[in-house]
Simulated assay, not measured.
Amino acid sequence: MRCQPFLGQSHLVLRDNLLGWQEGNVTAFLASAVTAAYPELVGEPYRDADGREYLPMLGTPVMVMVADGDRLASIRERADTRGLRIGVYTADLFATGNDVDNRAAVASVATEKLDLVGLAVAGERRVVDKVVKGARLHP
């Protein structure tokens, strides 16, 4: 499947019934998915007035949104049909403790059966906006 080039828009969509710690965890992992897929989006290191250097961050806005499980599934389907690169976080990943087990948990479930709790959608802004339609900004 051909993927769209990244032109400055990414959305993280979380399931709307997550606990606070789960929201933070899913957000962090999905932001890392965007960073891994598009390393050119990482800005320069930060420096304070004393010259101390801090880690660089994504240099583009990342919108965090919420949706129910059915909407997450439809967002994944719309992203697939448009050839967008996506990151997934499933409920099974809350019970794993490392990347190998995370990938095995996702690999053990068919696409349509994934229990999605979060998605990262990245691509051209007008396309991404259409794909995430129906999700709302995180409160």
Rank of each mutant, 00 (worst) to 15 (best):
D68F: 12
A73R: 15
L41K: 03
E44N: 01
A91W: 12
A105V: 04
F29Q: 08
V64R: 04
S108D: 14
A120S: 15
G118Q: 11
A73L: 14
N98P: 08
G20N: 12
V66R: 04
D80L: 13
G97D: 13
A110F: 02
F29W: 13
V62A: 04
L55S: 07
Y46G: 12
V42S: 04
R71K: 14
N98E: 14
R78F: 03
V42L: 14
E44G: 01
V34Q: 05
G51R: 01
A33R: 09
A105Q: 05
A107H: 07
L58F: 04
Y38F: 15
R82L: 14
R71N: 06
T27K: 00
Y54F: 15
A95N: 06
S108T: 07
D48K: 03
Y54T: 02
V34C: 01
D80K: 06
D92I: 06
L93R: 12
N17E: 11
V109K: 00
D101M: 02
G51C: 07
R85A: 15
A107V: 06
G24D: 05
E44Q: 11
L116W: 09
V117I: 15
V34D: 04
Y38A: 04
G83D: 01
L18S: 05
D115A: 14
G24M: 10
G24K: 00
A95L: 13
R82W: 04
E23L: 08
P45W: 05
L41F: 00
V88K: 04
D80P: 00
L84T: 08
F29K: 09
D48G: 05
S108R: 12
A49N: 11
I86S: 01
G51L: 09
A28I: 10
R103K: 11
E44Y: 02
G59H: 02
M65T: 01
G87F: 02
I75M: 08
A91L: 10
W21E: 09
